[in-house]
């Protein structure tokens, strides 16, 4: 074993990349859950986004169009969940599970012709001046644009939820949908928009896996990333900034275990591969203290 082969700067730099897909999916789910909807279909939307993004990017040669296709695909799939839970009043847990199973099947079917193809390159951007700072430059300022999109999205969601009227309405709907309804807010409309946003974010996260992180299409490639995103929302106590912490923590564990595998640590590979999932469980146990939105997972039916 050679631990000196692990370069701490590269480790920290790849941590940000490893955290990005989870962060993207989690920020979308956070908005959905703040609106009072529990969508357990993140995994299904992510993998659908992964193949939609990959197919569009390969077809057009443009990763940017790929990401847009992924967001669209994720949002469309999430609307299926929205119609079922909001208009047909189905159980959210069961419908979310159905969405995951459906998404896994759909993506496998769509991805048949894309196995073994390489995604078009998505180059890193070198931010002038900031990227030249020693140590910090390579860690923070020399990544592909989506890393920064994830960060901007996190900040944007915080700003929206806490500084705008729309955010206030969304939180009101999530805390107490009956009261929000009584005040005249359109509960179902707000929730449908939130669900679509969550789907688009999950799609982006999935496409980040297939276009940047891997970058290839393989069946079931998300390997639980969507579920980890759900766990991180709980860990964050439904607060955007703590989401960032959770995602980086998870990214850190993932990158570290990959580096340890490469360094040839005396632990079998399988046990190292377990570590992100075990870390998620440990984190859930320690940090289950946050207060969930009041109407989370409850069915809204405006009776008269």
């Amino acid at each position: 074993m050679d631990l000196s082969a692990i370069n701490p700067i590269l480790l920290l730099a790849s941590l940000m990349v490893a955290a990005t897909p989870i962060l993207l999916a989690a920020i979308g789910e956070l908005v959905v859950e703040r609106a009072g909807v529990l969508n357990l279909g993140v995994e299904g939307m992510m993998i659908t986004g992964a193949i939609c993004g990959f197919a569009v990017a390969v077809g057009t040669g443009s990763p940017w169009l790929g990401f847009m296709g992924a967001a669209l695909g994720g949002a469309l799939l999430s609307l299926l969940f929205g119609v079922l839970t909001q208009y047909l009043l189905s159980n959210q847990v069961a419908t979310g599970l159905a969405l995951t199973l459906f998404g896994l099947g759909l993506s496998a079917l769509m991805g048949q012709g894309y196995i073994g193809i390489k995604a078009p390159a998505f180059p890193d951007i070198h931010i002038p001046l900031l990227g030249d700072i020693p140590v910090i430059g390579p860690i923070v300022f020399q990544h592909d644009p989506l890393v920064y999109v994830g960060l901007l999205l996190t900040g944007g969601v915080w700003w929206f939820l806490h500084k705008t009227r729309g955010g206030l309405i969304l939180r009101a709907v999530g805390e107490n949908h009956d009261a929000a309804h009584a005040l005249g807010y359109k509960v179902i409309k707000v929730r449908m928009l939130a669900i679509a946003f969550g789907g688009a974010c999950a799609g982006l996260g999935g496409a980040y896996l297939s276009l940047v992180r891997v970058p290839q299409w393989t069946e079931g490639m998300t390997a639980g990333a969507g579920w980890i995103a759900l766990a991180i929302v709980v860990f964050a106590g439904w607060k955007p900034w703590r989401l960032l912490l959770g995602a980086y923590l998870f990214g850190g564990v993932t990158v570290l275990q990959l580096n340890l595998q490469a360094a040839g640590l005396a632990i079998p590979v399988e046990y190292l591969s377990m570590s992100p999932y075990l870390a998620t469980i440990v984190v859930l146990v320690i940090m289950s203290a946050g207060r969930a939105p009041g109407s989370l997972g409850r069915i809204f039916h405006a009776s008269r």
Binding site: A98, L99, L101, F102, G105, L106, A108
Partner: peptide
Amino acid sequence: PGAAIQLLQGMLLFFLLA
């Protein structure tokens, strides 16, 4: 394709919930 069956099973659950 085998994935079509997986999709069919997922569809079944969706329709049931609907």
